[in-house]
Design a protein around this nucleic acid. Sequence first.
DNA 1: CATGAATGAGCGTTCATTCAT
DNA 2: GATGAATGAACGCTCATTCAT
Lengths: 213, 213, 213, 213
Amino acid sequence: MTVEERRRVKRLPREVRERQILDAAVRVFSERGYHEASMDEISDVAGVSKPMIYAYLGSKEDLFAACIHREATQLLAAVAAGVRPELPPDMQLWHGLAAFFEYVGTHRESWRVVHRQAITQGGPFSDELLAMRTQAITLVDTLLVRVATKEGLDGSSTESLAAALVGAAESLADWWLDRPEVPSRIVASRLMNLAWMGFGGLVNGSTWHPRET
Amino acid sequence: MTVEERRRVKRLPREVRERQILDAAVRVFSERGYHEASMDEISDVAGVSKPMIYAYLGSKEDLFAACIHREATQLLAAVAAGVRPELPPDMQLWHGLAAFFEYVGTHRESWRVVHRQAITQGGPFSDELLAMRTQAITLVDTLLVRVATKEGLDGSSTESLAAALVGAAESLADWWLDRPEVPSRIVASRLMNLAWMGFGGLVNGSTWHPRET
Amino acid sequence: MTVEERRRVKRLPREVRERQILDAAVRVFSERGYHEASMDEISDVAGVSKPMIYAYLGSKEDLFAACIHREATQLLAAVAAGVRPELPPDMQLWHGLAAFFEYVGTHRESWRVVHRQAITQGGPFSDELLAMRTQAITLVDTLLVRVATKEGLDGSSTESLAAALVGAAESLADWWLDRPEVPSRIVASRLMNLAWMGFGGLVNGSTWHPRET
Amino acid sequence: MTVEERRRVKRLPREVRERQILDAAVRVFSERGYHEASMDEISDVAGVSKPMIYAYLGSKEDLFAACIHREATQLLAAVAAGVRPELPPDMQLWHGLAAFFEYVGTHRESWRVVHRQAITQGGPFSDELLAMRTQAITLVDTLLVRVATKEGLDGSSTESLAAALVGAAESLADWWLDRPEVPSRIVASRLMNLAWMGFGGLVNGSTWHPRET
DNA sequence: CATGAATGAGCGTTCATTCAT
DNA sequence: GATGAATGAACGCTCATTCAT
């Protein structure tokens, strides 16, 4: 019995198959995009017949949502693991950013699916993604608020700043995806500087305003 | 139908027809996304038969590329018009950002096509988009370099900062698209503050570095 | 240019194509039944590609409904044409029945689709069929009522008798379908006798009742 | 799972399992129709895994044929039980009809499967059904022949009359299925009157013939 | 010039059926 | 004996694209 035959014949437990399918789906969705991806290719890559996909993960939409959910959860977990609460705020932010870019760098497919694809598909996908994003923003906001209140800054605009920071990180990650030669530390450090200095300025009260010209 | 009657039906010059088609295509692509958009609907909205579209603008891909090109060119022109070279650098940046958000706010369909759609479709579309982006980055880089060299900062990393800024602007615009209640000035001002403060820090040489923990 | 090529190339007007498609659909539905019939086969038989069917007649359900409607209408028209109002009631009934069996005998496929298939498919098809049946029953009822009132019979149960007669005719036609050797006149005459004698008995007041045993 | 435990799970004898499966199949076929019924649902309703069904009853077709056979046999038995040979012919017919409608009324699912479903599916099912029908026609024919010969009527057309009667009964039952408010006795009585009066006319020699118009 | 008519090719989905366990 | 796991094959439907008119 050859290895190939063995593969075709073995009856794997559902859990294993589901992982195989999700792995394949992430890869194909990442490479082709949601619409260009065909269930046929996914089933080929997964080494499983199409009916299995439908039996275990449901429709194409369901499958895509499952991908986003799994990958986004992993990403968020990686970032959260990087942030250690006993450190001072700036170091927390730094470690969070470093973990984020580290993860994106080592899981490019994952990121492509979660961000590039999910963001443009309306409906149920956005919801899944939105929830994750909200969590990320909350994470950052918590940090900023701690600094801001200490320093006496009005806490009202921290959330929008957090949103901008998350957005900037996403955007930078997207930009970085096409430049594999830059080390993740460098990218993280650039954003950290921009963010911390900019935020520092706001905390000091030295805001910029347009002058009359 | 006699020759006489034939002459009476609208027989518009090619240029006008092309504009009609492109307008319709931008609208439909923006509403439905690239893949959900059907040539049938575009031809309906344009009030032109499908063979006309193929004759004038080529395949669906060609049509989409043409949309991106036209809209991106307009956007870039609007931003460039905002930047007035006789002003000091910070005011140039400010007017550029203001013009950008102003344009995005008043041409939401256009932006949806150019950014949200184009970014997720691989292949030929990215090229069109990439070229425009490079122009934008160059525009900003020119500004930064002028300040940086004046102040003695090493000019090596200005380009990546410019890229980060452009990326942040794009991301923020995307975020803003779903929040029509925020005035464009406010959004522009937030990004301006973050950018200018952060950049100012770098110029001063007061960079942030991770400490040992 | 061969005949075949000519057929592939000719652009026929919509109306003609629709008839072709409906003809093919009636044939295939009649032979295979609704569920076993495939759109592929119908398109093959019609000598048209599948997209044409969807463009002109809509979904499989729509197509089936269109078949029923067309065939049922024709059948009813044939029967109505047979009934001549200037004749006495029994001759009207006779000509109606004769026309009915004549039609069924010469349009077996049509009848199979209208009755055998439509009757067992729920939903929208039944409605179409029900409407036709109601018309048929009304037609018969009108006849019976005229006789019944003349003779003084209570007209309350004529409708159910009409329903029974229509049902018996349908059933007899179904039975007859598998016995092509029997002439249509004979079948019609048998039902006519059963009906007229039975109805005559009722009119005379000589009804049958179960006796105690 | 130990040998001990295995023995405790329900390990019913084949006969019982088959009945379970057939019961479930009749229910599902009756509700959904042959094609809409899925083996999955049947196995669910039966509380048995799909491979069991295939092991015991064979393919879907086989299963359906088994359903028809069982139900049709029951129906015929019920009718035959109603007919008591010691009674006069008209009372025999009456009791047969009454038993028929009584059975259909109390076993609607059964009837739906036997008649409505089986009649529209070609091939093997018709055979099963045809055999049963032939038996029913023979049953009625026997009755009619006895009367007819006694009275001197030519016996040649009794079979077709019997067929018409059986067909009318089937059709009336089908019509009645959707009108549960009518009592079975009424329906039976209507058909009995129509049949007996009509048949009586023939026996008397007072047949109807079309006149010249 | 302009279009209604026409299609090849492919997609998402389902289902009866069969093994390995 | 009994089942979860697995699939081949087909079906309904759509869409970008192209001719004949």
